[in-house]
Design a protein around this nucleic acid. Structure first.
Lengths: 249, 249
DNA sequence: AAGGCTTTTTAACAAATGTTAAAAATGGAA
DNA sequence: TTCCATTTTTAACATTTGTTAAAAAGCCTT
């Protein structure tokens, strides 16, 4: 892992400001954070299940997955992470990583020492709430994944994931006209959806055959967003937070 | 819904002290909370998906489920809640309830006004962290449910849920020698596991036939805990937090 | 004890998805 | 360009799980 010190809290500040308003003091505190950046190649593990990390990571560029290994050797991807996500914020409170984070593409990661994150929390209740809100969104997405895998057939399930992905990327400006980067193999998609690679392939052909999507060379496009939402039984409500003035005055 | 004012922050204080240490000021603040208790009959909805509640609930007695409805009318239970849980704490930050909470048994619920919870957070960083930690455990359980439903076959899946339930009830002193109340119909169990009632029944017979469990009149017992853990591919790590001194000094 | 509702169990069959293996296509690296 | 590895696609078949319906058992109320 190659890391370098940087003075670039910009992306982190923008991230937190999507979660909650920050005042000048808070922005200044974030700006003074000693941050490092690390780069990972596709397939590299960023953090491993069972690790006891002393830092959190924020995705600057690239895509990652969070996965757990089961007894028989299978792997379940429990979330995909996109730029702006802080996928292991829970490591501030949980002793051992319950998932592995793996880079799906060339990925740039911001490293935030736990110590620094805790100092920030102690200094600013609002930043604490922002962190908490980040983990709540992750929890809401996880619950929706339970529903998706537990109740929906393969076609609906995959359509739902595509909708979720486009919706989340849109928030950070990475989806343009229902078109986004989605650099995942069909095998990975299967691991995320609890489906075999072969069945994923069948399902994709059906979605393409219905003219709902195209997905080539890692670029996903929804051709008829409304219809895709309907086929995917997708309602984006679970992705959004209450306005921060409800929480903090 | 019948409610009555009470002066009984005791259970709430004990709950939070399982999450983080509290000092006298914090205990006093909790003690002064204007709390109400509500009672629900089996099958009654405590909070409904889409609601915008002004309060959180803490389970004092009884069992509840959190579920989401899907487009075709199906229902997925995304979590079971036991005494000590605060199942809708996320409503402090999320505008609309993303799940419905339903009483599975006669249930006593403590109501905490959002306003009061927010004041507590503003007064005590430690209580904020305690709340955050509660939601993180819920998130960890949700991720494990994704794994359970996505990767494990029916037998393993149900065995895993039984292990999780016994382990969680044990923490609050409600499991004795791997024996606990688990007042759920096979239909509900199916909704939780993404399996049909019929298949749940087949699976239970297999578990009983192997002498791993008994489950009669709502009382679940693991006869050979180690073996049940193994069949259920259960590792309780995801249920526990870092000691609080790691987080706050 | 009888009646009626809910829950569990059984059975036969249907459908969705998994498995294995191989062929075709794709994309880098030399 | 060619080669090699990875990924996607196809095919045939196996297995798990779902569906429907009805019977049996359990449980609450009268």
């Amino acid at each position: 892992m190659v890391t370098s010190f940087v003075h670039g809290a910009g992306p982190l500040i923008r991230k937190l400001e999507r979660l909650i308003r920050l005042d000048d003091d808070e922005r200044r505190a974030l700006d003074q954070l000693p941050l490092r950046v690390a780069t990972f190649d596709p397939g590299q593990e960023i953090v491993r299940q069972g690790d006891k990390p002393q830092q959190c990571v924020a995705v600057l560029e690239g895509f990652c997955s969070a996965s757990k290994i089961v007894g028989d050797g299978g792997r379940q991807i429990v979330s995909f992470h996109i730029p702006g996500d802080i996928p292991d914020l829970q490591s501030l409170h949980v002793a051992e990583m319950d998932v592995s984070l793996t880079a799906l593409t060339q990925t740039r990661i911001l490293l935030i020492q736990h110590e620094d994150a805790r100092r920030l929390c102690a200094q600013s209740l609002r930043i604490t709430h922002a962190f908490w809100r980040e983990t709540l969104i992750a929890g809401a997405i996880a619950k929706e994944w339970v529903v998706n895998i537990g109740q929906r057939d393969a076609l609906t399930r995959v359509a739902h994931l595509f909708c979720e992905t486009i919706a989340r990327l849109d928030v950070v400006g990475l989806a343009d006209d229902y078109r986004c980067h989605f650099p995942v193999t069909q095998e990975k998609l299967g691991e995320a959806m609890g489906l075999s690679t072969v069945h994923i392939n069948r399902t994709l052909q059906e979605l393409r055959g219905r003219g709902l999507i195209s997905w080539e060379r890692g670029v996903l496009e929804a051709h008829r967003w409304e219809d895709l939402q309907q086929v995917g039984d997708f309602d984006p409500g679970y992705l959004s937070l209450a306005p921060d003035w409800v929480v903090l005055r």
